[in-house]
C-alpha cells in the first residue's frame, strides 16, 4: 500500500512537472520573440514624448534608480530619466521624466525646460493608474498645453493652490501631481547646472 501510494505521488508530481516544464519552454520562446519589440516600443514612447516637449537632440544623463527630488512644497517626486538637449550645437535645456504620485500610482510625465527658464511643454506618457474619465484625462492635449511657457521657477500650481493651471474636472489630485512633477523636474534640472 505504502509503495503504491508513493508511486502515485511520483506519477502525479511527474505529470505536473512535465506540464509546467512545457509551459515554461513555450513562454521562454514567446518571450524571446517579444523581448525586442517590447524594448523598441518603450524606447519609442520616450522618444515620442521627447519630441513632443522640445524639438532638439537629446543625450541621456544617467540617473540612479530611485532618485527623488523634494519640491518647495515638500512633495517627494521620483526622477525616472533625464536628457541634456542641444539644438544646432547650442545648449537648449533639459528634458526630465518624472513620476509624481497621483491618485493610484505614479503619473509618468516628461517635462521640457529651456535655458531661458521656461517650460517648453509636458507630455503625460502614462496615467494608467489614474481613474478613467477623471485623472486619466491628463494625457489629453488640452490639459498639457497649459504648462507650455509656464515659468520654470518651482511655482507651477493648480488654481486651487494659487497657481494658474486649471485642474481636470474631478481630478485635483492628478492635476496637482503633474504640477508638482513639473516643479520637481525644474529643480532637478537646476541641480544639473
Amino acid at each position: 500500500m505504502a509503495v503504491k501510494q508513493k508511486n502515485e505521488f511520483v506519477q502525479l508530481g511527474g505529470i505536473l512537472c512535465a506540464i509546467t516544464l512545457v509551459v515554461s519552454l513555450c513562454l521562454g520562446a514567446v518571450n524571446a520573440i517579444t523581448v525586442d519589440p517590447i524594448a523598441v516600443q518603450n524606447k519609442l514612447k520616450t522618444e515620442n514624448a521627447l519630441a513632443q516637449v522640445m524639438e532638439a537632440d537629446s543625450e541621456e544623463i544617467e540617473v540612479p534608480e530611485g532618485t527623488t527630488v523634494t519640491t518647495d512644497s515638500g512633495t517627494s517626486v521620483e526622477i525616472f530619466s533625464a536628457y541634456k538637449m542641444t539644438k544646432d550645437g547650442q545648449d537648449a535645456g533639459y528634458c526630465v521624466e518624472v513620476g509624481p504620485t497621483g491618485f493610484g500610482g505614479a503619473v509618468d510625465t516628461m517635462v521640457g525646460i529651456s535655458t531661458d527658464g521656461k517650460i517648453t511643454g509636458i507630455s503625460v506618457i502614462s496615467a494608467a493608474s489614474e481613474t478613467p474619465g477623471l485623472g486619466a484625462r491628463s494625457t489629453e492635449e488640452e490639459f498639457q498645453a497649459q504648462f507650455k511657457d509656464q515659468p520654470a521657477d518651482g511655482t507651477v500650481a493648480v488654481e486651487k493652490d494659487g497657481g494658474s493651471i486649471v485642474a481636470l474636472t474631478g481630478a485635483t489630485i492628478t492635476s496637482r501631481a503633474v504640477s508638482e512633477g513639473v516643479n520637481a523636474a525644474v529643480k532637478f534640472a537646476a541641480e544639473q547646472g
Binding site: I15, I19, I38
Partner: peptide
C-alpha cells in the same frame, strides 16, 4: 493524461501560460 487529483493545478498552469503569452504579445 491529466490525473484527476491534480487537475486544477494543471489547468491553472496551462491557463497562466496562455495568459502570459497574450500579455507579452500585447505589450510588444
Amino acid at each position: 493524461i491529466i490525473p484527476n487529483k491534480v487537475r486544477i493545478a494543471a489547468f491553472i498552469t496551462i491557463i497562466a501560460g496562455f495568459v502570459t503569452m497574450i500579455d507579452l504579445l500585447l505589450q510588444a
